[in-house]
Amino acid sequence: MAWNVYLSGEIHTDWRERIEEKAGQADLPVTFSAPVTHHEASDDCGVQILGAEQNKFWHDHKGAQVNAIRTRTLIGKADVVVVRFGEKYKQWNAAFDAGYAAALGKPLIIIHGPDHQHALKEVDAAALAVAETPEQTVEILDYVINGRLAGYNA
């Protein structure tokens, strides 16, 4: 069985690429999906496709709705949802994705550093695992998919 893993969260570091690379090295039967990570395209998709808006609220609203078609569909099809919270920006969209996935009963893996423990305590409580690195996330996937645990004979 191929597992569908949705990678949500911050777009300013290479964490997605690191997960995909390590999963490939581990030969995991995984298909990854994600939101559109080109920031400007994600912001402007609604007005680019459906027409300009003078008010920034409606500009953003149109984009959010168009992006939600992708996000809701891919999270709905996911076997596991991974949500990364970065250091630099507040990722309200990532928190929303985590809540949406939790409401659907999707297994959640949350990634963030120790400095976000308090701010994300409710998100972490909904998760089945909270990792600090993309590499730990791949180890979790390897274990749950293949039953392999580094240092143990499976």
Rank of each mutant, 00 (worst) to 15 (best):
V130E: 06
A64K: 13
A101H: 06
R16M: 06
R18W: 09
A131R: 14
Q48S: 05
A125C: 08
L149M: 15
L128I: 06
R72G: 10
D14S: 12
A101Y: 00
L50H: 09
H112K: 01
A52K: 11
H116E: 10
Y143P: 01
A52W: 12
L7M: 12
E122S: 15
V144A: 11
F96T: 01
A150K: 15
Y143D: 02
I110W: 03
N153H: 12
L7G: 03
H61V: 02
Y143C: 06
S8M: 06
H61D: 10
A94K: 04
G86D: 03
F96Q: 03
L120E: 02
A95W: 00
I140W: 02
W15L: 04
E53S: 13
V47E: 15
G105W: 09
A101V: 01
F57G: 08
V5F: 08
D60L: 03
T37G: 04
A34W: 10
I111Y: 02
I19T: 12
A154N: 15
G46K: 01
K62F: 14
E122C: 15
T71R: 15
K106C: 09
A102H: 02
N153M: 12
E20Q: 08
G24L: 13
T71Q: 15
Y6Q: 14
W92V: 06
R84H: 15
L141T: 00
Q91N: 13
E135D: 11
D14Y: 03
P35A: 12
I110A: 11
R84K: 10
Q25G: 05
A95D: 09
T31P: 00
V130A: 10
E17M: 11
E53G: 07
S33K: 05
D14N: 07
W3S: 07
F85L: 07
A101S: 13
V123W: 08
Y6S: 11
P134H: 12
K22V: 02
D27Y: 13
A150N: 14
N146C: 06
W92D: 14
G9E: 12
L7P: 00
A150I: 03
D142Q: 08
A127V: 01
I145D: 01
G24W: 14
N153F: 04
W92A: 10
I75D: 02
V83N: 01
V123R: 05
A154W: 15
A98V: 09
F85R: 08
A101D: 05
W15Y: 10
V130K: 08
H116L: 13
E53H: 13
Y152S: 07
G51E: 13
T71L: 15
L104N: 05
L108I: 01
F96V: 01
S33N: 09
A34G: 07
H12W: 04
V130D: 06
Q65W: 13
L149H: 12
A78Q: 01
Q136D: 03
A41F: 10
